[in-house]
Design a protein around this nucleic acid. Structure first.
Lengths: 357, 357
DNA sequence: GCATGCTATCGAAACGTTTCGAGTCGAATC
DNA sequence: GATTCGACTCGAAACGTTTCGATAGCATGC
């Protein structure tokens, strides 16, 4: 029942005790190949008696060449990544599909700046695939390493390497769609709050040099391009210094709204719901009512239970995106070569937009 | 440079190409044992030429008996678990320590109700240790399985099994401390909003039968006991139906505050900051100002950037707790047998408490 | 009475490392 | 010149499975 000494029992111990060969014992646990009822029973009894809880996963993995784990690369500190409810939604959908396989998700943190340390961290890990779902723009040193190891890679748009199978949305088209909605309400002075264009971008107005039309698949860039497709290339845009964050939204909101009324935008298009929430706080701090005095839109379509508004947003259906990602991973592990897919984003009108006064 | 055909190169391929034995090649990559400079160079060159990215982790793990991954058990859907910023803080601290080893964190979801499926999910996973940090009260079927496999277990208080090494706080004492603070301000009619006493608890008033003094190590129970140590055994307490959630706090807050003024409590002691935030929303919805009309306290000491208050709370230093947890895991993997530890929780007075009017 | 087919079982060969003990060789020591 | 010592290298034996091909037993069909 309990381990004698230190060593765990092995399949061989079980086989010996049951009076069968190791291969037969293996068959009993894997369920492949025909085994007589009585034999199976004897083996299971021996296993129970020895406290054998099943074949050693490491040995089994080595034989199969599969570890049963996929890596999830997390850029920056965990606490930051997990503040983004959209990322969580994707992860949740992913887990939902992978649970059934079953495959575990191995979190791999990647603190900023330590470029090659992630490779050192990755090298000793046995992974069947890797998902980039909490990463920002820019190249990731992990991509080269994983490509060399032949580990299949998946992402939700960034990094944009062609060796990575993607579940993406047409960011620019989505940016156009929400901007159109704002314009159709009658807004003309409209500003944009973006996530950083580059990993190195500083908070503040977006420099034109950082907006490369070729990078339209990067969410921050694509959404800004879409916005400017509607409101013109000179429509004001500021970026946060830290991705999709509430604080970043608040800071940007103050900068845009704390100006004399004639210059003040009548609507702000933000690149995420969390940023939009921050902008709303900034507006309310300044005594502006949303949506009467100022309209605010978000992006993502996540639940913000603590926000007493329903943000007008582009619903990206994060959980569904995660599920699709999971399905792609599964199919890849089954030997197929699934191609990248594009998911639609849907305009969802909430309580934070109205015609200008 | 690139894989020929499908097969990845192995250490043997590298050794052959470099004209050395496999064991010597192994020495080069592991850095153990003396290797002549020239030999090492030759092996590395051969590896580069073949596109060998390092020893196969699976084989290496089998040999070492270590997988380089620790499991993190997540009760309920991922999205729910990750809504709790305290859990995230613990995870963040844990990751900080484990990154350096390096060891990955393998998330294992455990949807409610599917009692033995977690074992099925766990069985094929190679884990060096398991951390329960996002789990609620009650027994967990995974504990038996892991104990049988001899996998070291760690937790932050629950489950309370003695085979698990714990980083806990004295929940009851902490509950007393914050209640004392509220009483010292002069409050007499004080209510409590708890997390569920049992996994099966329904939202609403806490039935006496669910409050077992023996279970004082369970956070929800211990904190309530501490609260009642100060305000008496009949002080009103309601529990949420879903752990530490904003919505749960709002619902409970409405139930407690939407009553005629003479019956209304002048302070509410909540079992988490997130719940406290929900209570504050409920209060404000009813036109009550915090802290002028009603004081609200939380628990945990997490950052809620979107909340325009600094909650008075017991700071549990989640990140530090996670770091300690990580250190315990590390020491255990180094062969020590670290004992459970108790962390202090510190009263941190914010802007949500004041004397009653 | 012999080929045929099926079921149940087994031995041996992987899977790709790491580690242990042993061996080689040249330099230093007596 | 024999001995001792390091530095370096190597072969072989694990680590605990899974899988392939072979074999044995036994009934079926002619």
């Amino acid at each position: 029942m309990v381990a004698r000494g230190q060593a765990r029992p092995t399949l061989r111990d079980v086989a010996v005790r049951a009076g069968v060969s190791v291969s037969t014992a293996s068959l009993v646990f894997s369920g492949k190949g025909p085994v007589a009822e009585a034999t199976g029973e004897r083996v299971r009894a021996a296993a129970a008696a020895l406290g054998f809880t099943g074949p050693n996963p490491l040995a089994s993995s080595l034989r199969h060449g599969r570890s049963g784990a996929i890596g999830v690369l997390v850029e920056g500190r965990l606490r930051m990544a997990f503040r983004d409810p959209f990322a969580i939604a994707v992860l949740d959908g992913l887990a939902e599909v992978l649970e059934a396989v079953p495959t575990g998700m191995l979190l791999i943190g990647q603190p900023r700046g330590s470029d090659d340390s992630v490779v050192l961290q990755l090298a000793p890990l046995a992974l069947d695939a890797v998902v980039f779902s909490l990463c920002g723009p820019g190249d990731n040193p992990a991509v080269e390493h994983l490509a060399a190891r032949g580990i299949p890679m998946f992402s939700t748009g960034v990094p944009g390497d062609r060796r990575i199978t993607q579940v993406r949305v047409d960011e620019r088209a989505a940016g156009v769609a929400i901007a159109e909605h704002v314009r159709s309400l009658g807004h003309q002075r409209v500003a944009h709050v973006a996530m950083p264009m580059l990993p190195t971008s500083a908070a503040g107005p977006v420099p034109d040099a950082e907006v490369q039309p070729a990078e339209a698949n990067v969410p921050s860039v694509g959404r800004l391009l879409g916005f400017r497709d509607v409101f013109g290339p000179d429509a004001p845009a500021v970026q946060t210094g830290d991705g999709s964050s509430f604080e970043g939204g608040t800071i940007a909101g103050r900068a845009l709204l704390d100006v004399p009324e004639p210059e003040r935008p009548t609507a702000i298009v933000a690149q995420s719901d969390v940023i939009a929430a921050g902008v709303i706080l900034a507006a309310e701090e300044l005594g502006l009512r949303v949506p009467e005095d100022i309209s605010v839109t978000g992006f993502d379509g996540v639940d913000l239970p603590w926000l007493p508004h329903r943000v007008t947003t582009m619903d990206q259906q994060g959980r569904e995106k995660g599920r699709i990602l999971g399905t792609l991973v599964r199919r890849r592990l089954d030997g197929e070569r699934p191609r990248s897919v594009t998911q639609p984003a849907l305009l969802r009108v909430g309580t934070t937009t109205a015609p200008p006064r």
